[in-house]
Computed example of a mutant assay.
Amino acid sequence: MAKQQKQTSMAEKEQYAVLKYIKEKILKDFPDASLINENNKTVNLKIADSKIRLKQSFDLSGTFPIIYTDDIDNVLHVNEYIETLHNIHEGTEGNENLYTSLKTGSILINGASTDLIFILKNVTKGFLEVTGKKYEVSAVVEVNPENALLQLKLGEYEFDVLVENDQFLVILTPDYDENTPTSIQKEINNDALNIQLEVTAIHKSV
């Protein structure tokens, strides 16, 4: 019985190797990071005065790991660490199992995939850089792993844009209230389409 428990424990450790690797990388990359507590499935870290929680689960097939990251103070964003997590598999080529798990798995930060985070950054940049217009980005709300709702403003008109990270393209869908003139809606729709094409070219190029 003891032998069977030991085998189960070793199997669990291998199964949650992705969580362990990400924990150790964060502790290594942040000099002021420390471990609060952990078990096989969950890790609680502290970076300076901020707390970060990592929890590993799997997709519905039980094959691909998913790391859920709660980062209330956005420490990972502030320190521009998202790209590191997005490319977390790089440098692990010598460990085939770990490399495959990291490359095929997903990391969600405050509900959004690292893919979506980069897409939102480029969509926001696209609106802010539209020539001759002054768009304002108010907030990002209703975040899901592969879509989020942006709240924006053009002049006095407020509107939402649903940003979807589809398999083959990025989709932007503006939504307006009844007081927004048709001419303004048409203007925003045209800008949104151009930004959609630009961001899709960046993120979905073959």
Results as ranks from 00 to 15, higher is better:
T100P: 00
A48F: 06
V141Q: 12
I72F: 14
F159L: 07
Q56A: 06
V170K: 08
N189M: 15
K103N: 02
E90W: 01
I171D: 06
N95E: 11
P174S: 13
M10R: 12
A201Q: 15
N110P: 01
T200M: 11
G111F: 01
I36H: 00
Y99H: 14
P31S: 14
K6P: 00
G62H: 09
I72G: 00
K20E: 15
K186Y: 12
E93H: 08
K46R: 14
I72A: 14
N110S: 03
D177W: 08
A192D: 07
K46N: 10
I188H: 07
Q196F: 13
A48Q: 09
D175S: 13
I117R: 02
K6D: 11
P65C: 06
H89D: 10
L116D: 12
I195N: 02
N122R: 04
H77N: 10
K133W: 02
N110A: 01
T182H: 13
A17N: 07
I82P: 03
Y157G: 01
F118A: 12
K103G: 01
L85T: 03
A33R: 06
L19D: 04
P181G: 03
G94F: 04
N190C: 05
L169A: 11
N110I: 05
S113H: 03
I36N: 05
N179A: 02
V161L: 12
I117D: 02
S113V: 02
Y21Q: 14
K6W: 08
Q5D: 13
L128T: 05
N44W: 01
S183R: 12
N44V: 06
V161N: 04
N194K: 14
V78H: 04
L154T: 08
L108S: 01
V75F: 02
N44F: 03
N165K: 09
Q15A: 10
I202Q: 13
T131G: 06
L76N: 03
K103D: 03
M10T: 08
A112D: 07
F168R: 14
T69G: 01
L45D: 01
D73Q: 09
L169Q: 09
K28L: 12
V170T: 12
I52W: 00
S205F: 09
G62Y: 09
V163T: 05
L116Y: 08
Y99K: 15
E198T: 12
T42H: 11
E136F: 11
I195H: 01
L120Y: 00
I109M: 04
N74D: 07
N37H: 03
K103C: 06
T42K: 15
I171R: 15
S138H: 10
H86G: 02
I195L: 08
E198R: 03
Y81H: 03
H77V: 09
E96C: 09
Y16E: 04
N179V: 04
V140R: 04
I107F: 00
K51A: 06
K23N: 06
V141G: 00
E198D: 09
L27P: 03
N95R: 08
V141P: 00
T114N: 02
Q5I: 15
N190W: 02
K134L: 00
S34L: 06
S57D: 14
L162V: 09
N179F: 13
T42I: 10
Q7W: 06
E136Q: 12
S9Y: 13
N40D: 14
S34A: 12
H89P: 05
L169K: 08
N87A: 10
Q4R: 15
N37G: 00
S61E: 13
F159I: 09
H86F: 11
S34C: 12
N194E: 15
L193E: 10
I184A: 11
D70M: 05
